[in-house]
Design a protein around this nucleic acid. Structure first.
Lengths: 348, 348
DNA sequence: TTGAAAGCGCTAACAC
DNA sequence: GTGTTAGCGCTTTCAA
């Protein structure tokens, strides 16, 4: 690294003190107009850049926040992250992004990494495997604010942004029921591929599903709910292949996420089972691929951009006023009905 | 932020000087075994963490590098980024990630942002729209090393990692020719959806395509190559719809990337055109969705993990030895033939 | 083997 | 308005 000009250099050049330079640059009131102008011109001509480390050291701040997501290979989290970055960069913060591949240990390592980097706050969506509740609390106790988004940890007293997973799962399941009944099946058998138990929202989604069945007087046989090992396409494919093998193909399938749904649909198509004619399939969270499958996948769309922005603002709020009360924001969502669940829709 | 313990605190506690503490912690040789032990124990019990800003300020380093990618909604760049992070975190660096949504101006802003953050080096894959060559050179001149990956700027003298886009496009095109000939079409009409002209590799891909046609004595009518406006699914869909409308559906289609290919395939399927029976389609870069379409999409697979690791190491090399010569690394790739191009393959 | 002192670049009292 | 001084937490001569 070459030597960058410092306020000292500017001061020497102008034969004034560095405090004056500092003040002029910081836009302090008590600087004469001429001095300020001179300093600004000199700074520009020397291509001066403030050294943020020195500045932050004196102010004992880092102006850095961290983001922890379970994965970022699907477009879901990247779309949120982009918004987070937008908000924080505007405020002069740096954003450190980490992903943990759904692993509990990696999540912990990431949190530690961010802590070591002295971030002023952390935005997190919890991993599918395992739970770091104790560590979240430790961070909170150390004065590092946490804001949860999408996948929250409800046992923690911290701000969060999410949608009403219960409600939308209820609606999604009802949609499947209505559709199958519309096709003449009065008592459709609707199954659920249920996400990991240690994601709070996966339980909410399950309850939404189950309650919809109850409301419509349908069987809630536990065998209709399959707990998934992973939340990937491969897992969806595997589970549905099993069902096909044991002749237990349902009339409707509501999946924890799109990946599972896409995998399941693929297994069905491969076996020549008609989707949606024979089985209606619904995903959740509207992935990139929902519009790539044939038929296109019905899913619950979340306002990701808003979620990112809101999460960022909640964290900013907490950083600026550490004593502010945590807030739980619930965003709206929507049901995107496509060909995978409803024969009346375009298949492509 | 609460007050973290500093070496001063440790020193006071142990009644020794902070220089000794610093040395003990840094693993300097000239510290007695007992002192070192005492310091380490005390540091552990006080939960001491070095303040990286102070450390970096004294050493006038930032231990931060930046990454600039054109987008990260497709899994392509995230997969590379994960590897970059792995390499650099192991070396104690922070990684700042930025994306520019293919925009030239946003890319420039990102570079500036990274520069303001005093990164010690930048890993970049250039945006589709516009080119910041002059700015790259400015950064290089300022002593900030740049390493290009995937999408390089060949006019810049800097290290880079990529695959041989010409060669693999040539192979991909040959595959289409062989397949169509195998189906009895001696003189197949192979089209190309060509990527943005200001991405160097998009020209390489075009040349590979064109040369394959020449080799096999096929028409290289310019009308067979369509310059795309974007490199998205929508654009692929739009272009193919036009071709269908004007009755100009080709026998084979080689696309700049998977997104275009998927969009094109969708337009074909929507119009009831048989893929691959009537048209063989090939993408490039093996996206997440390649295995979601029906038929599955043939594509050129790149070693993304290796690309990320290699790019990271090249940058590290350059940071540690600024005078080292730039190196251009070409990685191997492979042709993944699936149902979209070859009727002999599984469609699902 | 250890300590004292200077300094990295910047900000913020406190004087004048 | 402006300069002086001290200090953020750490490393690194230079002495002892």
């Amino acid at each position: 690294m070459r030597h960058n000009p410092t306020i000292k250099d500017i001061a020497r050049e102008l034969c004034i003190s560095k405090s004056t330079v500092s003040r002029a640059l910081a836009g302090h009131p008590n600087v004469s107009r001429e001095t300020r102008k001179a300093v600004q011109d000199m700074a520009a001509s020397m291509r001066y850049k403030p050294n943020y480390m020195a500045r932050n050291l004196t102010k004992s701040r880092t102006k850095t926040i961290g983001v922890v997501v379970p994965e970022f290979l699907n477009s879901f989290f990247p779309r949120i992250i982009i918004q987070i970055q937008n908000v924080f960069e505007k405020e002069g913060y740096r954003v450190l992004i980490t992903q943990c591949d759904e692993s509990w240990e990696a999540e912990r390592r990431n949190l530690k990494l961010l802590e070591d980097n002295m971030v002023e706050g952390i935005l997190i969506s919890v991993a599918a495997k395992g739970r770091n509740t104790a560590y979240y609390e430790e961070l909170l106790a150390k004065g590092i604010p946490l804001v949860f988004f999408n996948r929250t940890d409800n046992s923690i007293k911290a701000s969060s942004v999410s949608i009403d997973d219960y409600k939308w799962s209820f609606f999604a399941t009802e949609h499947l029921i209505y559709t199958r009944r519309g096709l003449g099946q009065d008592v459709p058998r609707i199954m659920h591929f249920r996400g990991p138990l240690n994601i709070d929202l996966s339980n909410a989604r399950y309850r939404g599903y189950a309650d919809a069945l109850v409301k419509h007087h349908l069987s809630t046989d536990p065998a209709q709910t399959v707990l998934t090992r992973d939340i990937t396409r491969d897992e969806g494919y595997r589970l549905m292949s099993q069902l096909i093998g044991s002749n237990a193909v349902p009339d409707g399938l509501f999946c924890f996420n799109d990946q599972l749904a896409i995998g399941a649909m693929r297994a069905l198509l491969k076996s020549g089972v008609d989707v949606p004619g024979r089985v209606s399939v619904m995903g959740f969270s509207e992935s990139q691929s929902a519009l790539v499958t044939v038929p296109a996948l019905s899913s619950v769309a979340q306002p990701l951009e808003e979620m990112g922005k809101t999460a960022a603002r909640l964290l900013l709020e907490k950083i600026e006023d550490p004593d502010s009360e945590p807030r739980k924001v619930i965003l709206n969502a929507s049901l995107n009905i496509r060909g995978s669940s409803d024969p009346a829709r375009d298949m492509i």
